[in-house]
Structure formats: C-alpha cells, structure tokens
Amino acid sequence: MSISREEILQIATLARLRVTDAESEALSQDLNQILEYFDMLASLQVPEGGRLGLGPPRAPEREPGQIPPDPMAQPPADSAPDFREEFFVVPSPPSLGEADDPGGSP
C-alpha cells in the first residue's frame, strides 16, 4: 500500500490541515514508510469482526438527576477566542448565505 501526494492532500482537507507541496513530499515518504510497516497486518489471518473494546462490557446508563452537570469554574466566554452577545462567534462558512443553518447535522 502506498499513499500518493494527492491522497495526502485529500486527507489533509478532511482533517482541516494545510499541507504545502514541500511538506507533502516529505510526508508521503514518512507515511509510506509507516504504512509499509503497517502492511504486515495484511499478511495475518484474522477472525471476522474482532472485539468491541475493553473496559466494561456494557455502557452504564445514568438516571435523571444522578450525575449533576460538572460546574464550570469560569463561563464559556472566558476561554473563547471570540464571544459576543452570549454567542461563540466564528467567521462565516464560505458557501452559506444569511439564513439559519438548516441543521448542521448532515
């Protein structure tokens, strides 16, 4: 398996990272060396599925009122880069107009 510079740029877009041309050269070398090492996984016969994880076998469920919200020593405004009129403020997305966002939950 090897990863092309183009793929690196696609992945960087997904991860919201900027990779310059010079960096993508070095990165593709590094990543390909690592992926080559990872490829030993492909040579192994593995059972289907695999385990679901460690820790407790089932998600604990809380009852209403059982765990109160962890109090905040400072309000959210104190750590926010830009907070105005009770809102976190960010630059507007490039493609959206003035309407309310339809959900943010695609």
């Binding site: 919201r16 900027r18 750590s79 880069p81 830009d82 960010v90 630059p91 507007s92 490039p94």
Partner: peptide, 19 residues
C-alpha cells in the same frame, strides 16, 4: 479554534480559520 485555544483568524472564512 471555536470554543477555546488559540485561533488563527488571519483567513477569510470559516474553512480558512479551521485550517
């Protein structure tokens, strides 16, 4: 860069702010 931490706001829009 939305709720905490150091934001780079030198860009034009949200996408650039993230990147």
């Amino acid at each position: 860069g939305v709720r905490y931490g150091v934001r780079d706001s030198s860009g034009e829009d949200l996408g650039e702010m993230y990147e």
